[in-house]
Design a protein around this nucleic acid. Structure first.
Lengths: 240, 240
DNA sequence: CGCGTTTTTGAAGCCCCTCAAGTGTAGTGG
DNA sequence: CCACTACACTTGAGGGGCTTCAAAAACGCG
């Protein structure tokens, strides 16, 4: 049985079979979670560490006036809430976007792994740093890119991340994100997201249809976005 | 001699005197760096780990068209580039904003600390997580807050962070950030930053003057910003 | 089929940007 | 002491990108 999380870590740090065995054991308790279900809510003390094995999830925050801002998309292989401190209070919520399969590692076990497995620690630290790079890229997008560039950049990010996890087929990618969700991630209204998508479709760059994104001209898309995949620290080790 | 970096870590994790001694030794090589000086540039392989002991710095990125987006402000006690992987490529640059005092810890030493000092690892991991929370808060600001709310939120963040480091005097705070720099951080033009600041001044909420920010009504400011300091995971242990 | 959700399109308006010019302040050198 | 320069701050006028409000069309699912 394949495990997206382990695959991702192994792609960047040479983990011993012992380390891999430990991770496999921790992920054995995976359970199915329906779509639109909160894994953890803002204000909660840090619970177990979640690992997404299948499906999509997102981090989000609700503002006083009710607006929602999504701060990250989580896809298979991603994990969240790697807090060591017992008294860490969640500053955001995490919810599934689709039906998902999620493993949870008890905090005590996780702390034990960090204290005793240096290479595993290195791999997890690495994953954390890449996530941070993605956050910075989002800030750059929201601060200095137009709506079209912003949409294009997000699509590039999701495409490369999905490709790294072997989730793409050619220039296609399963993308179960409604225009409302995209708007909440990009800081745009769903109405405007729709107009941007139409423009990208008419220009023959990409077309989302029925939960699947088809990228017709990845070169044009990357150019438009000013996309530089360096920040994802993509290693070619596992590339096809 | 006080060390802002050590103070910050000690405030959240109980470090042994041995751990503290190691950090002190690593920071002994601190040097003065003039304002507007790049500590590390985008595209560089990861060099030493930098620790800001005095002064202000920022992470930033330049877009193809020449626009700049600042993704983080660094103040005394903050450190950057905690990459473990040798082949990590910087996806952004870091520059001083004022004359600063900066220590640098060689990567090999840092990796050794992580591998051998679990409590130190925990403290550094913790600092990393807080930084990540700040990044998420910036995304929320840029996505869903108006320009006034955005400015207010940033000021709240900087005030609380500075207060935690003992850098405030009452409701005052040394804030050596030009309106152009603020604009590049907030995703606004300097012209508009100016108008927002005027509005906040006229409403008797705050007034920046000559590199010093005076907050006249912190309650109103926090309310306007929708500011919840939870995400900074502020511990009261060291508070006055 | 019928209902909720998502997508699509239109019209009007505002927030923030762009362009432009003027003011103030600090530093430098005559 | 006063030019001269550089830079940050300030203010005004006009325009455009995205929002808001509204409603229709298309889709998915019981």
């Amino acid at each position: 049985m394949s495990n997206a999380f382990i695959d991702k870590l192994c792609a960047h740090v040479d983990l011993s079979t012992a380390d891999i065995g430990l991770l496999e054991a921790e992920c054995a308790n995976a359970r199915d979670v329906p779509a639109r279900h909160d894994l953890i809510r803002e204000g909660d003390p840090s619970g177990p560490l979640f690992v997404i094995l299948a499906g999509w999830a997102c981090r989000y925050q609700i503002l006083p006036q009710g607006a929602r801002q999504i701060t990250a998309f989580l896809m298979p292989g991603d994990c969240c809430d790697m807090h060591l401190a017992k008294n860490y209070i969640m500053d955001h919520s995490i919810a599934t976007l689709t039906d998902s399969r999620v493993a949870s590692i008890p905090r005590a076990r996780f702390e034990n792994l960090i204290a005793t497995r240096p290479f595993l620690t290195q791999a997890l630290w690495w994953a954390q740093l890449v996530d941070e790079g993605v956050l910075r890229a989002w800030i750059v997008s929201m601060g200095r890119r137009s709506s079209v560039e912003r949409v294009a950049h997000l699509m590039c990010e999701l495409y490369v991340r999905a490709r790294n996890m072997g989730l793409t087929t050619g220039d296609q990618l399963e993308l179960p994100l409604s225009q409302l969700v995209l708007g909440d991630a990009l800081g745009l209204t769903p109405v405007h997201v729709n107009r941007v998508l139409r423009r990208l479709r008419l220009e023959g760059i990409m077309r989302p249809r029925g939960g699947v994104l088809v990228i017709d001209d990845i070169t044009k898309l990357a150019l438009l976005a000013g996309f530089d995949e360096q920040y994802l620290q993509r290693k070619l080790k596992r590339a096809a």
